[in-house]
Design a protein around this nucleic acid. Sequence first.
RNA 1: GCGCGAGUGGCGGAAUGGCAGACGCGCUAGACUUAGGAUCUAGUGUAGCAAUACGUAAGGGUUCAAGUCCCUUCUCGCGCACCA
Length: 873
Amino acid sequence: MAAPYNPQQIEEKWQAAWEKSGIYKARDFDKRPKFYSLVMFPYPSGDLHMGHMRVYTISDVISRNRRMLGYNVLNPMGWDSFGLPAENAAIKHKLHPGAWTDKNIKYMRDEQLKKLGTSYDWDREVTTSSANYYHWTQWLILKLHEAGLLYRKSAPVNWCPQCETVLANEQVENGACWRHPETPVEQKQMSQWFLKITAYSDQLLDDLDKLTGWAERVRLMQKNWIGKSEGAELNFTVEDKPNVRITVFTTRPDTVFGVSYLVLAPEHPLVKELTTDKQRAEVEKYVEVAKRKTELERVAADEKSKTGVPIGAHVINPFNGDAVPIWVSDYALMSYGTGAVMGVPAHDERDFAFAKKFNLPIKEVIAPEGKAQGELKEAYIEPGIMVNSGQWNGLPNEDAKKKMVDWAAQNLSGKPRTQFRLRDWLISRQRYWGCPIPLIHCEKCGAVPVPYDQLPVKLPTEGITFTGQGGNPLGKAADWLNVKCPKCAGDARRETDTMDTFIDSSWYYLRYCDANNDKLPFAKDKVDYWMPVDQYVGGIEHAILHLLYSRFITKALRDLKLVSCDEPFSNLLSQGMVTKYSQQSGRIEKMSKSRGNVVGTTDFFKKFGADAARLFTLFAAPPEQELEWSEEGAIGQFRFLGRVWRLVQDLIDSKAILNAEGKPAAPPEGIRAYGNLDQRGKTLLQSIHATVKAVTDDLSPQRYQFNTAIARCMELVNGLYKFTYESDSDGNGKESSGGEPGVRSNLTQQEKELLSFAVCNLLRLLAPMAPHLAEELWHQSGCARSAEDFIHTSEWPTYVPELTVSDTIELVLQVNGKVVGKTHVPRGLPDDEARNLALSDEKVKSKLSGQEPTKVIVVPNRLVNVVIPGQGK
RNA sequence: GCGCGAGUGGCGGAAUGGCAGACGCGCUAGACUUAGGAUCUAGUGUAGCAAUACGUAAGGGUUCAAGUCCCUUCUCGCGCACCA
């Protein structure tokens, strides 16, 4: 009796053997076609659970499949290891963030990712918090500084009081910090470092069209985030002050005759200047209140709670000379457009609500049929014909738009303008555990870059304590802080802000191409060989932040001639999250520690093995969908693996698949013709070829349907059981009753070759998904030529298209589209014969009851549909 | 509110416009047993003894033929949301 399937034992054995062999090393400049397979690298939080494992499994299957298909695969892994949790852990445990991080990395790498059976090239491991990585983050940021893309300015910024740091716009969600939605961010005026991502707004938007390998919804999210609006600037002159003009941005210059007021943002510099004495007290109070409002409160305000105060002054509409009042209201944002908005209540929902509340005139200037509708119940925002608009009356509003902007340009009262929602990327963080910004502040010279030969600016460890109070510990490290200016050698201070960790992760895929370079971040020729990434796999939560930043950095580095590609990720697979029932909430929720519904990796691997875990996460749902973790389902995969194991053991024990030398009995080229096989053998051979085709297609980038790939393997295994155990005569199943079930004793030599061929192919099809079991049986069954001949470097099986389909088919007979019968016919039966066959069928005849059919549709090799008249539907 | 996406057995999910429910979980029955998170065999959409009828959120349409394409409605999920 063969040994039972013991995953733990074989998994450890092969993980060690693979590591020793180096079969997963990527080779720079190899002649094989390259395939760069990337998975979003983790933050080393300390413990991965089954929810995390899904993404690594998917990416690993793709990598292994491509490798077997003959590609030179780069499949690297690393750690996004700067960031707040390490610093918070340091405060809590009185441990340096670096020590905490290193400990976590070691555990996650050696006890979790390796034990999952991943095929990473660990020689290229990167850790963003190590000096040999952040050295080059600093190098790159200085290059961006030289290119004018890094600048410092004082601006109102989002401050998270809990993180004690500023945040990028992208990291503010509903007015709260992305890390804790319960903490509203505050507005602070601070001098901060920004990256000029807006210089690339147009490219980032236009090139989305090139990304055909991305899901439409991800592209759409980026498009909306960039938020391009075409419109115009229009200048309104202040009444009685001909030298003072207020410029508004509008996407609807065609509605300018309907302006009945103008709004300034509370922060707008002209508010103070223009407010009349009479209104001053009220306006100042309003501005004060608006300033104190958090972003959250401003966002939460709906139309009914619109607020505002007239400042007493008026402006002249450049188109018709009307004077309209100026208001201050916080629905105008200083950070968008010009901070001033023209109010057109008749054709803007927001303005309509504002006018209703404050009793401002509503003047209709666009009407559906060119006739004014009179009193409006709501804003009319559809296209229409111009009315009440002087010389433009009667024009379609879209035509008027262009002409009116032209007119404004000629009269110096406006010009076309494109406005983006995207803002520059605020990268300063007032925290210790991040990459130091390599600049030095000198009173005389300003902000001076640290010379390249003095990089990296290392994070100091001396004199640093983590108390969680009093701000950034870097500000207290006197030895580190006080330096001489590189330019004038005078006294100067280091920048104490560190970089947003999204900087680290927006170039790590480039570092993988040349991870051990100690002269440069990467050699250009290596990056040009590997880039772009052929398949990126990761969570949808990065649809905007990380992916947009990475695209920007790639484009900026392209313009600096440091890389050649301009889009980093050709294909993106956004895998769905893993969920599980949570005792805490009583609902099915995303698997996470805080929800108390995690399934750990270690226990599961010990009991059922990594292969079963991999198979279940692949099988239970298509990769882009949500997946509910089910212990029973996972055990089901363990049973399937056991079924494969027992079958192959049985075949080996009974000498059914090995020849006298202990090698597979199948001819080396496989079995590519029916030969003398009987029907049962033909069916199995066909099933083998069909399975190879189906799994090959399912694993291809066009599909990535791992669930059906596994289902097809299961079908083949079921077929093999039938073929192997079912005796000819009684058909009573596994060697009838009693005793050890056994392999059919009457196997012919040809059938043994067939079985042998089946096993070699089945194992290779399973290899990407269940790498350990496949490897073990590959060697046991003698398919391996030596102990070093790994299944993962073997060739992916091929199929003969003609053998993927049977030579007879079941022809479906329909009457008016309903199935009335089926009949077996040879494949390729001529249409007229199929037609005659259908018309002579008893059931069809009885339905016809003597009538002539109106029509007979023949779908070759599928069905015949007889259409009978007058029977309705 | 706007924009995407999805609704298929008890459950997860399959189906280039051509036999709905592959494959698995669960369940039922049988066999076997060195009792193992066993294994093997058969069955399992609903109603019915059956023939058969009905079935892919609801309604309509296109088509010889619709889960699949079109329109309307409903439900759920996701994203964005004072962006002028």
